[in-house]
C-alpha cells in the first residue's frame, strides 16, 4: 500500500487534484465564479473558441449546391454559380437586416435609457452538460463585465452573467430555475417574480407563480422586469403570458410565460454593465 502512495503517478494525481480544489475554493472566495486555471485556459484558448463560434454560425449560413454529371452539367454549373452568387447576396442581405434590427433595438433602448452602459458580445460556446441553455460569451472582466450583470437582446431579457474570466463569461438564461426576476404584468400592474421549473424549462417556458386565484393577468399579457432586486433595470420585457394555471399545492394561480427571445437562435447579445439603481 505504501508503494502505491509513493508512486509517481499517485503523487502527480494528488498534486494536481489539490491544486484544482484550491482553485475551486479561490473561485468561490473571489465571487467571480472562475478558478485561476479556468481564467488562464480561457485566455489561452479564447481565440480558438471565438474562431469555432464564428465558423459555426458561418456554416449555418453556407448555401449548399449539388452538381449533376448528366448532359446538362455545364448549364447546371452555370446556373448553380448564379444561384450561389444570389444566395450569398441574400445571406449578406439577411445578415445586414439582422444586424440592422439588432442595432436598431439597441439604439431605441439606449435613447430611452441614457444611464445604461452596454457591451456587445457574441455567443462562442455552451456547456454540453447544462440542460438549461446556458452559454459562453466572448467578453469578460476586461470589458467591465461582472457576475450578475443582466444580458439582453433588444428590449428582451436573456439572463444573467453567472461567472466571469478576463476574456469570457458564462450566462444563465431565463430557462434556468435558479434565475428569479422580480416582474409585473404591464396591463394589470400585478407584481410577482418570474422563474421556471425543470419541466417548463424543457418546454422553453417560464412561470410567474403566486398570483391571486382571481388574478386579472391573462393570456397575451406582457410581463416586464420590475427592477426591485437591483439586478435588472425596470421595464425590460421578459415575455408574454401563454396560459394561466392553478398551482398544485395552494389556491394561487401561476402565469405560464413564453420568453420574448428564442434562445436557440441567439448569436449576439448585449450585456448591461451599469445602470441607475444597479445593486453592487
Amino acid at each position: 500500500m505504501s508503494r502505491f502512495f509513493k508512486s509517481s503517478g499517485f503523487k502527480l494525481f494528488a498534486v494536481i487534484l489539490a491544486a484544482l480544489i484550491a482553485g475551486s475554493i479561490i473561485s468561490v472566495a473571489s465571487r467571480s465564479g472562475s478558478s485561476p486555471l479556468n481564467k488562464a485556459v480561457s485566455v489561452v484558448f479564447g481565440p480558438a473558441s471565438r474562431l469555432a463560434g464564428a465558423l459555426s454560425s458561418g456554416f449555418n449560413d453556407l448555401p449548399i449546391s449539388f452538381r449533376s454529371s448528366s448532359y446538362y452539367k455545364r448549364e447546371n454549373e452555370r446556373l448553380e454559380k448564379e444561384i450561389d452568387r444570389l444566395r450569398e447576396q441574400f445571406v449578406d442581405y439577411e445578415d445586414l437586416v439582422h444586424q440592422n434590427e439588432f442595432y436598431k433595438e439597441f439604439l431605441d433602448l439606449k435613447e430611452e435609457h441614457s444611464d445604461y452602459e452596454f457591451t456587445q458580445a457574441a455567443i462562442i460556446g455552451s456547456d454540453a452538460a447544462d440542460r438549461f441553455g446556458s452559454f459562453t460569451l466572448n467578453k469578460g472582466s476586461s470589458s467591465g463585465i461582472e457576475v450578475n450583470d443582466p444580458v439582453i437582446y433588444g428590449k428582451y431579457v436573456v439572463g444573467t452573467v453567472k461567472s466571469v474570466t478576463p476574456t469570457r463569461c458564462v450566462v444563465n438564461t431565463l430557462l434556468n430555475p435558479k434565475v428569479n426576476i422580480s416582474a409585473y404584468d404591464a396591463r394589470t400592474r400585478e407584481v410577482g417574480y418570474v422563474t421556471t421549473t425543470v419541466e417548463y424549462s424543457k418546454q422553453g417556458m417560464c412561470v410567474m407563480p403566486g398570483l391571486s386565484p382571481t388574478t386579472a393577468v391573462a393570456s397575451g399579457g406582457i410581463i416586464a422586469t420590475a427592477g426591485i432586486s437591483g439586478i435588472y433595470p425596470a421595464d425590460l420585457i421578459i415575455g408574454t403570458v401563454d396560459d394561466i394555471v392553478d398551482a398544485t399545492v395552494d389556491i394561487s394561480a401561476s402565469a405560464i410565460i413564453k420568453p420574448g427571445v428564442d434562445f436557440s437562435q441567439l448569436t449576439d447579445v448585449f450585456i448591461i454593465t451599469d445602470f441607475n439603481g444597479q445593486a453592487k
Binding site: L17, L20, I21, G23, S24, S27, V28, S32, G33, S34, S35, L37, N38, K39, V41, S42, F45, S49, G125, S126, D127, A128, A129, D130, S134, T136, K162, S163, T165, R168, V170
Partner: peptide, 16 residues
C-alpha cells in the same frame, strides 16, 4: 476538463 470548464461555470468541476 480545463477546456470544458471554459464553457461551464468555471469552478474546475469538470477538470477535477
Amino acid at each position: 476538463g480545463a477546456l470544458w470548464d471554459t464553457s461551464a461555470r468555471g469552478n474546475s468541476f469538470n477538470a477535477i
